[in-house]
Amino acid sequence: MTKIVGVEIVEHEPDPAPLIELVGVRAGYGSIEVLHGVDLVVREGAVVALLGPNGGGKSTTVKVLAGLLTPTAGEVRLAGRCVNGTSADVLARLGVCTIPEGRGIFPNLTVRENLRMATQTGTRLSRVEETAYARFPRIAERRNQLAGTMSGGEQQMLAMARALAVDPAVLLLDELSMGLAPLIVEELYELVAQVASEGVSILVIEQFARTVLGIADTAAIMLSGRIAAVGTPQEIEQQLSSAYLGGSHE
């Protein structure tokens, strides 16, 4: 039984082992601290949605998890091992796959060359291409086009394709919906749900919550550099408006 800011959840089954854990993580940029002690768990095969308004520290949390930012205090654990200070490329090769905020692609490389970048983790190019084109036939047509010249939705598909082709253990998705048409966002999240059903642990970060809550097992609200609430998607949905509009979220 866990106490979460006034909400009590009764857990019926033993939980799968945590794959990613943040324990009291503090991090920031220079002398400005952004995360003031974040505790978060992503269990094996679970989809966790991290929600909250702008400036709450969601993207900073992803940066810490991805190895782009070293925490100043606390621990980041990957499958039980502390990975504080491990660089992003090592984590990527260990199976932590991140699609950063904005378009996670290289605009001046062709689609094919973008996919080639995914082979750094050891997967063969032919296999990466095969998986990517099977999932997204639309980008297969554009394989020799410069990625930066594609539409926003296609670019995000390419980013997803590249990430999924390497069979990641954990997928970190930062603001997948940013600047995209609702239909495309829906399409992308259907895919995320499909990937989740294949057993990949996923941490999704979104400002626009409702789409994500549909696919998440657990959701958390992040406010002012701290996790303000954790619960089932239904519980969190009730607290969302107060979280975004300010005031109490008890």
Partner: peptide
């Protein structure tokens, strides 16, 4: 390809394991 990718986005290369 990695050399050219670095110019576009250095940290993304690292996120790809490069």
């Amino acid at each position: 390809v990695t050399m050219r990718a670095v110019v576009d986005d250095r940290s993304l290369v690292r996120l790809n394991g490069g």
